[in-house]
Amino acid sequence: MKWSWRAKSKAETKAEDGEGTETGLECDAESIGRRIQRRTDAAGEAAAAAERAAPMLVAERWGGRVAEWGHWLARSPTGVDLIHWWFDEAELTALVGEDRYVERLGELLSQASARDIAAMGLGCTRRVDRACRFAEVCSQDPVVPPGEKLASHRHGEVPGACSSFIDCFSKHEIDVTFADGDRHRSVLLFRDHPGEARLWVDGVRVGEGEWLDKGGFWEGERFFTIRIEGPEDHPEQGIGAMGNQLCTIVSLLIHDAQRGTTRILVPEATESWTDPVLAVRDGAGWVYPTREARAAGGAPDRVFLLDEPEADDPEAGDPEAG
């Protein structure tokens, strides 16, 4: 007697499939080939269906703008890491704490390419208030003529993406600027207060412990400059003008990306540094109290040699000797 609920034996299963009998198909090479082909076709159809569904899955998880960068992100592990870290902020902050989340965000932005950052959805050189709308162009590889370097100041839509990015909407207030054909870059997370701001230049923390302005500038593609809080005892010190992040008199931080060194210039009592700027001329750095003073072309307040020996370099010798 056969019970309908009884599990079939292997022999019964093979018999129903025509296997293990003289008339079975397992000995028929042509039938085996058809079976293999059916499995191959089924696998191909499944892969094609998965590929068609991928953009929808990405859009559901990270949004349609990220999906448009899929072909680039498939080539960029750092970009994928950055996307995960950026979009999973709440969960990752709960896991590692806010301080570590911010630190890792700065590290990833310091490693990412311009295209990786564009894929995040930040504003760019073309439009600071919205994400890139030209991923089909900006995700392409830039064409650099032989003997030349990637353009430092890029304005989309352009292969390789723009050269600067601004975050106008998150609490981190990200500002990333590439320089010298993307050989250098500054990453600033202002975070709503000069005392909370964090700055990286070429992946190295710069200006730790200082109150930083909301944004800096590259001069000559070698020097990154940013205003920082000035001396409290300066005779002209006071509350900054509306919209300024710092007090009236400020100091100037200058980071030499080529040498990896940082100097901070503090104004003397007779120097009215309300908007100090650096000009690079004749192998020297000229510091003016304001942009207007630099434009006027007068005498600078300070002058220093760009490649003067390091103070702690035992091989440098005495710069005044001879």
Rank of each mutant, 00 (worst) to 15 (best):
M1Q: 07
K2W: 05
W3M: 10
K8I: 00
A11L: 13
T13M: 12
A15V: 00
E19W: 11
T21I: 02
G24C: 03
A29P: 03
I32L: 15
I36M: 15
I36E: 15
A48H: 02
M56R: 15
M56I: 06
R61W: 01
V66W: 07
H71K: 15
G79T: 08
E89N: 06
L92P: 03
D99Q: 14
R100Q: 12
L122N: 07
R126A: 08
R127T: 04
V128W: 13
C132Q: 06
V143I: 12
P146F: 04
S152F: 05
G156F: 02
I166S: 11
F169H: 14
E173H: 13
S186W: 03
A197R: 12
L199R: 09
E210C: 12
W211V: 02
F217V: 13
T225A: 03
P231T: 07
E236Y: 00
M242A: 14
M242G: 06
G243F: 07
I249F: 06
I249P: 08
S251M: 04
L253H: 07
H255A: 02
D256M: 03
T262C: 09
I264D: 02
V266W: 10
A269Q: 13
E271A: 07
S272R: 15
S272M: 12
D282E: 15
G283H: 09
V287N: 02
P289C: 05
R291S: 10
V303M: 09
V303S: 06
F304K: 09
L306I: 10
E310K: 11
E320Y: 11
